[in-house]
Design a protein around this nucleic acid. Sequence first.
DNA 1: TGTCAACTAATGTAATAACAGTAGTTGCGA
DNA 2: TCGCAACTACTGTTATTACATTAGTTGACA
Lengths: 164, 164
Amino acid sequence: MGIVGDMTNEEDASRPATLWNDAWRGVLFATSRTLQVAEPELIATAGFPLTWLDVLAQLYDAGEAGLRMQELEQRSLFTRSGLTRLVDRIEAAGLVRREAVPGDRRGVQVVLTEEGRRRHDAAFVGHSKVIERVFGRRLTEAQLRAVAEALAPFWHDDEDRAES
Amino acid sequence: MGIVGDMTNEEDASRPATLWNDAWRGVLFATSRTLQVAEPELIATAGFPLTWLDVLAQLYDAGEAGLRMQELEQRSLFTRSGLTRLVDRIEAAGLVRREAVPGDRRGVQVVLTEEGRRRHDAAFVGHSKVIERVFGRRLTEAQLRAVAEALAPFWHDDEDRAES
DNA sequence: TGTCAACTAATGTAATAACAGTAGTTGCGA
DNA sequence: TCGCAACTACTGTTATTACATTAGTTGACA
């Protein structure tokens, strides 16, 4: 039942094992495997999926004023489209509220409700523990530091879409 | 005003900036940002999405015999459900073939067709270049090595669901 | 002002994913 | 061999996502 069972030691011509390939594979697997455990647990304990926590967390970080739909869309990690209806659902659950934007009648400001803040806090704490257990504890402190440092650039890019 | 307002301006009480948190955040962002670029490019050049490449790659690695549906489901990174119909679509496109399993009439063996292998190879090469450009080149060699080494455990686990 | 392109969010529709339930098969033990 | 639980994949249905289009708003400029 080997997993990668037949790990042929010969190099596959069409699959060069480059350094960046191994790194990417690691990142991808780490994300996938971790979320496979974390998402069901989030749903079980918080009652909503990661897409909701993503939105709630962005709004939490944004503070009082909340965010415009487009800002929310740009910042969110899990939702690339269908934000309107996602916010619809979260709003229907009472965790979020749409408010008019004073100077611009096109826009909407999405804001956390009190209930939303409470549910966010609880969910965030629980989710963090799961992440720590499933992801954090599998790495040494030095490894965590190295990964955090190496991948930091990816969450500082909001404007650089220019890659070669 | 709230919470953020009258808190210490540095550390947010409900968001401790732990080491593993930063590492996880990096991994998550790296995956998200990279795929946001890579998936549309894959569709544009190969004509199919990442879920297809995921399946094709697993079958490629599996070799001649192909894989049972369940093996495929366990190994795939992007598909957690709906594999039956995903394979339906890929099969309808002629990239994959379902074969009977000799000893077990319940099972199905999914195998790459010749066309499937060609399309896989082309897609894989193109996709790799994108990954290199968007992900690989943003890290130094030492960083790539550190990330690859630290996260390697995640793609060696198929049986350890036992986390604490 | 009047016109128009850009902007902002929502809507209609089709594709896909998630979840529960089903049909047929297998292997074990009475 | 019969009954039954486990197994394997599929189907029915609902929820969600993706993609294209639409409605209304804004700002610039003739």
